[in-house]
């Protein structure tokens, strides 16, 4: 069966779920639509089980951070091997306390991908079997991919700033020259302007 287009899939979803499915964004290179966060679970179950849609592959699960709109958008890419069609959906979550249902019961691929979004953005997925950090160490503070993330100045005593090595080298060089000049000045009466050239 040939794959459905974005519009056809969107049409089918709107027929089933009405308001919970937002309008299809204008095709700015990849159209997507926004689902209502509370009904994500049932919409996704429909996407997976409906014979005409049959999205059996959760291709990507990621998030984008929009501090200006005070939103975190979780992005889902669905793909169907049977029908060879693709769909992109988003969920908009409040940035202060982003929570959404987990898709792990439907697609096990969501397991690790949701852990990554939890780790890097701070989104809590309700119903996930094992929500803990995956890429950062377990006792890391902060969510690195957020736009307002600042490093906390070190991790367990390991500093995350250091002097520019070039500056360090220049300082060391200046110090050594000063010491050599101090050692030489009691003996020779050479003016200091000549000393660096002589020792170069």
């Amino acid at each position: 069966m040939p794959g459905l287009t974005f519009e056809q899939i969107h049409q089918r979803l709107v027929e089933k779920f009405g308001d919970a499915v937002g309008p299809l964004s204008p095709p700015k290179k990849d159209p997507f639509c926004v689902f209502a966060a509370p009904r994500l679970g049932e919409i996704c179950r429909f996407l997976k089980d409906d014979p005409a849609l049959y999205f059996d592959f959760l291709e990507d699960l990621t998030a984008t951070d929009h501090p200006k709109e005070n939103l975190i958008r979780v992005v889902y890419h669905f793909y169907s091997y049977r029908h060879r069609h693709l769909f992109i959906a988003k969920v908009e979550l409040d940035r202060k306390d982003p929570q959404v249902d987990s898709l792990e019961p439907l697609w096990k691929a969501a397991n690790w991908m949701e852990r990554e979004v939890f780790d890097l953005f701070g989104v809590t997925f309700r119903g996930h079997s094992d929500l803990r950090r995956i890429l950062m160490p377990d006792d890391w503070v902060g969510n690195p991919l957020r736009k307002d993330y600042t490093e906390s100045g070190g991790y367990r005593g390991i500093s995350n700033v250091r002097d520019n090595p070039l500056d360090l080298y220049l300082n060391m060089d200046r110090q050594v020259r000063a010491e050599q000049a101090a050692a030489q000045s009691p003996e020779a009466a050479a003016p200091p302007a000549v000393a660096p050239k002589a020792e170069g």
């Binding site: 291709e59 990507d60 990621t62 984008t64 951070d65 096990k108 691929a109 397991n111 690790w112 991908m113 990554e116």
Partner: peptide, 15 residues
């Protein structure tokens, strides 16, 4: 604004 690379090995580890 955001670059995301979803790789095959990441999902394979989950299994």
């Amino acid at each position: 604004y955001r670059v995301r690379a979803r790789t095959g090995s990441f999902l394979a580890m989950g299994i």
